[in-house]
Amino acid sequence: MIFTILFYTFVVVTAVQIVYYLFFLSFTNIEKTQKDADVNIPVSVIVYVKNNADILINYIQDLTKQKYTCFEIVLVNNASSDNSLGVIEKLQKDFSNIKIVDVKNTEAFWGNKKYALTLAVKAATHEHLLFTEISSKALSKNWIHGMASNFSQEKTIVIGHQKLKHKKNSFSNLLIRFDYLLKTIQSLSFVKFRSPYKATNHNFAYTKSEFFKVNGYINHMNLFIGEADLFLKDAVTTKNTTYSITIDSFVVSTKSLSFKKWFSLEKKASILFSLYKFKHRFFLRFFHITKLLFYLLVSYIVFVNWKLALPFIISYYLIQYIVLGRSASKLHEKNVVLLLPFLDICLVLLQISIFISNQISKPKHWK
């Protein structure tokens, strides 16, 4: 009797997981909002600067080589303690399309990134804004074009993709990129179904009008996290948001993420997750819960009657491999799924570890 109940529960959670993965596959089919040849809208590229004097020159010189008709670079220096301001002032003399926003610390907004970005938005010349950060770089000299081509009269928010740097012969890097791939296809699938919840300021575009329509970051200015996600939560409608998965629109992180840093960021991300809309929290949690149940139940059922469990296990991994394989191909991350079953199990165990760690010591908001 107990085995029968557990077996049928196993069948249900396997079916739920398969439905989720088929839902995730939807993001790979996207319609272009306008023809690339028609793109000529002026763009303000906003770059956040905080103690980056050592890499600023190479980064900005590379950014100025973008093949786009009309763009300015707004460098927002958020009270850097190094020589960042001096470097960008020198760069401004060399490049006429650079604008500087120098933010001084104030008692009310001490070191607040959202306050600095708000000043940058106000200072930007153009209606269409494209956000990035110095810890990432464009994969193509057509990056601005690749992102701007998704704007239309209806689509005023564009979510771009950031690839993580690949580190050879590193299992932790492979695991981190696998986790990032899964999170990316989850978030983009929700955009496809007109319910976006996640973006990154490393590659994010929207109009000034959308920013001021919701008073920018005013609803979460006191939180030192979520400048992209929480703005998206306030500004999104069922029609105004799209995303780009063409490689010309990608950026890539300049440094590989260590396992220790990733684990710390995952702990802190739980704060941001708690601020998402209820429907997003529910669907994402249900996905993780059913995945955990799948592995708990499969270990028991295989022990009792492996022949009965085998068709469901094969179906699960086959669908998972097809979906993640196609998604990885679209995002140019083909090698991420090579150790798929093992990576999936490791990720579940790590998520349990992160949950337990958060119960022992709650993460604090970070600056």
Rank of each mutant, 00 (worst) to 15 (best):
Phe294Trp: 10
Thr241Asn: 05
Thr28Lys: 01
Phe131Lys: 10
Leu175Tyr: 08
Lys268Glu: 10
Lys261Met: 07
Thr242Lys: 04
Cys346Arg: 10
Pro311Cys: 04
His145Cys: 03
Glu227Leu: 01
Lys213Tyr: 00
Thr200Pro: 01
Ala116Asn: 01
Ile73Arg: 06
Lys104Pro: 10
Ile5Arg: 03
Ser329Pro: 14
Leu139Gln: 07
Phe263Gly: 01
Phe342Cys: 14
Leu293Lys: 13
Ser189Asn: 09
Met221Val: 11
Ala15Cys: 06
Lys367Met: 15
Thr28Asn: 08
Trp262Ser: 05
Leu318Gly: 06
Phe286Val: 12
Thr156Asn: 03
Gln320Thr: 07
Lys291Asn: 07
Gly325Phe: 05
Lys137Phe: 02
Arg281Pro: 05
His145Gly: 10
Tyr180Lys: 10
Phe212Thr: 03
Thr118Asn: 15
Ser256Pro: 10
Lys50Ala: 13
Ala228Ser: 02
Leu85Gln: 07
Ser361Gly: 07
Leu139Asn: 05
Lys168Glu: 13
Lys267Val: 07
Asn40Trp: 13
Glu227Val: 04
His365Gln: 14
Ala53Thr: 03
Tyr197Asn: 09
Leu164Ala: 07
Phe250Lys: 02
Lys99Phe: 02
Ser136Glu: 04
Glu333Ile: 15
Arg285Asp: 14
Leu331Pro: 08
Phe71Ile: 12
Cys70Ile: 15
Tyr48Glu: 11
Phe294Asn: 02
Gln186Lys: 09
Ser357His: 00
Ser270Leu: 15
Asn150Cys: 13
Val12Asp: 00
Phe109Pro: 08
Leu331Ala: 11
Leu275Met: 12
Leu310Ile: 10
Leu339Ser: 12
Thr207Asp: 02
Thr184Arg: 05
Arg285Phe: 13
Val121Pro: 01
Val103Leu: 00
Ile301Gly: 07
Ser172Val: 12
Ile322Asp: 07
Lys260Thr: 14
Thr207His: 00
Ala269Met: 14
Ile2Glu: 02
Glu154Thr: 11
Ile354Asn: 11
Asn169Val: 06
Leu119Met: 11
Lys93Met: 09
Ala228Val: 08
Ile185Arg: 00
His166Met: 09
Phe95Arg: 11
Ser170Ile: 06
Gln17Val: 00
Lys208Gln: 13
Trp366Gln: 15
His332Thr: 15
Glu89His: 04
Asn142Glu: 14
Ile88Asn: 07
Leu297Lys: 05
Gly86Leu: 15
Ala116Glu: 00
Phe212Cys: 09
Thr200Ile: 01
Ala124Val: 02
Ser96Ile: 11
Asn222Gln: 06
Cys70Val: 15
Gly226Phe: 04
Asp62Phe: 06
Glu89Val: 10
Val76Arg: 08
Tyr217Ala: 06
Ala199Asp: 03
Leu331Lys: 05
Trp306Gln: 15
Val252Ile: 09
Asn201Met: 10
Phe95Leu: 12
Asn78Val: 11
Lys261Gly: 01
Arg194Ser: 06
Lys268Met: 09
Arg194Trp: 04
Ile345Val: 12
Ser135Thr: 13
Val158Lys: 02
Glu107His: 09
Val158Glu: 02
Val49Pro: 03
Leu91Ser: 00
Lys137Glu: 03
Phe250Thr: 04
Tyr243Ser: 01
Ser149Tyr: 09
Pro196Asp: 02
Asn203Phe: 08
Lys208Ile: 07
Ile225Phe: 12
Ser135Met: 13
